[in-house]
């Protein structure tokens, strides 16, 4: 799981162009949206694409992203359970 969390952080930093953020700066339990990394709705869509592209997870209901993207830990757990690649 630790390996997946680190990989996920690196992917998020790359795909969302978080230039000045390092993986260790992202708290595993901190909210990704709002106070946390300050991500916006376009970032949420980009994370949905990331999950499909890198892990084969097609999110049928984008509204579920709100729960899945609650934190890195929650997102990694969801990917672990649902990944097809």
């Amino acid at each position: 799981m630790e390996e997946l969390i680190l990989k996920l952080k690196q992917e998020i930093i790359e795909v969302l162009n978080l230039e000045d953020v390092k993986p260790e700066d992202i708290d595993n339990d901190a909210p990704l949206f709002g106070e946390g990394l300050g991500l916006d709705s376009i970032d949420a869509l980009e994370l949905i694409v990331l999950m499909e592209k890198n892990y084969g997870i097609k999110l049928q209901d984008p509204a579920k992203g709100k729960e899945i993207f609650k934190s890195i830990n929650v997102m990694a757990d969801f990917i672990q359970k649902n990944r097809t690649r």
């Binding site: 795909v15 969302l16 162009n17 376009i42 970032d43 869509l45 980009e46 694409v49 499909e52 592209k53």
Partner: peptide, 9 residues
């Protein structure tokens, strides 16, 4: 085929 929302905007 993965259209990027961040690029599209």
């Amino acid at each position: 085929y993965y259209p990027s929302p961040a690029l599209f905007v």
